[in-house]
């Protein structure tokens, strides 16, 4: 019995070590895709999982998504061999971590090779209890202005997209309604979505930040009043949900322009990755974008399958980072608003 197992193992090993003659970099290779989240129920994993399936198809490689968390994913991209066999799929947190000071300058975008954009999630949002006396965050501003003794507690996580959503709203509130109204807003330290929901149910927060899809069930009709939520501000348009209050549509602006912020999921590769690797990824992503199955898979999860090839993706993400950098330089330190 041992012998059979042993021979089988040796055979498999030999098969795997035999190089496959091919011009393509990825053909027949084993690829490791790391993501900056450890949760397999979040948008990072869901996007990476869908993209992984289509990349396998178009790159003809075998690949695996490893949810190792932001810290480990960044470290992996800094140290992995630049042969394209290890890359990261992650959202705006990649540069936000540096902008918020959680990560040092060695993690700057400049120290990575930017690959194509593989998808977007427009659903970052704020939700409040269903019976809250305002229907969206614009009304919330009016509601605060009407009575200076009113306060509202927003629960967000530090140093993440939710922090950004808070800061954008705060700066807009201050510029439009004045500093007093902005200061009626209190910051509550939140954690995972579960923690924030618990804060809301315990009445330790009034408005919580999260992802559109993770709040969806609580906003449906027929949910216990104690649990029921409503969306009060969503950072970008979710396809098929034109009824939701979007930041830009409510008149929330940044630099005078209405805000529409989606999380952009890009492929990030180690510094020094050769151009032909990136070109092959571009090619596969272009095919993926044209695949109607990919588009419907993404749409089913309320994500967008609008991709960008590496060159545009790089320009795009650098531009996005610079505008947010500017915003953060004007914004107060969130820790002072506690």
């Amino acid at each position: 019995m041992f012998n059979k197992k042993f021979i089988a193992s040796v055979l498999v090993l030999v098969l795997c070590l035999t190089p496959v003659a091919s011009a393509a970099v990825y053909d027949g290779q084993r690829v490791r895709i790391v993501i900056g989240s450890t949760a397999v129920s979040g948008d990072s994993y869901m996007v990476a999982d869908i993209v992984n399936r289509y990349l396998q198809k178009y790159l003809k490689c075998s690949s695996k998504v490893d949810p190792i968390g932001a810290n480990e994913a960044f470290a992996t991209i800094r140290t992995a061999a630049p042969d394209g066999m290890t890359f990261m799929i992650f959202h705006d947190m990649t540069y936000l971590g540096v902008l918020f000071g959680s990560y040092g300058p060695e993690y700057d975008l400049e120290n990575m090779v930017i690959g194509p954009r593989v998808g977007q999630n427009p659903g970052s949002c704020f939700a409040a209890k269903k019976n809250a006396p305002y229907k969206d965050m614009k009304e919330l501003a009016e509601w605060l202005k009407a009575d200076p003794s009113r306060t509202v507690r927003l629960s967000v996580e530090l140093g993440s997209v939710s922090n950004l959503g808070f800061v954008i709203y705060y700066v807009w509130l201050k510029n439009t309604y004045g500093e007093e109204v902005a200061n009626q807003m209190r910051f509550v330290l939140g954690g995972s979505t579960d923690t924030k929901l618990q804060q809301l149910w315990d009445n330790n927060a009034d408005v919580i930040f999260g992802d559109y899809s993770s709040f969806l069930q609580y906003t449906a009709d027929g949910v216990d009043e104690q649990l029921a939520l409503k969306y009060v501000g969503i950072l970008d348009k979710v396809p098929g949900r034109e009824d939701l209050p979007v930041y830009g549509d409510m008149g929330i602006t940044l630099d005078g322009k209405p805000v529409y912020f989606s999380k952009d999921f890009l492929i990030y590769l180690p510094k020094g990755t050769p151009d032909e690797v990136v070109a092959e990824l571009d090619e596969a992503v272009a095919k993926m974008q044209a695949d109607p199955d990919f588009q419907s898979d993404m749409a089913k999860m309320t994500y967008s399958g609008k991709t960008l090839l590496s060159k545009e993706a790089k320009e795009f993400i650098y531009g996005k980072r610079d505008s947010i950098k500017k915003l953060l330089s004007e914004a107060p330190n969130i820790e002072d608003l506690e």
Partner: peptide
Amino acid sequence: VSSWGGWY
């Protein structure tokens, strides 16, 4: 056996 079995 243990190494290659485990690896496999």
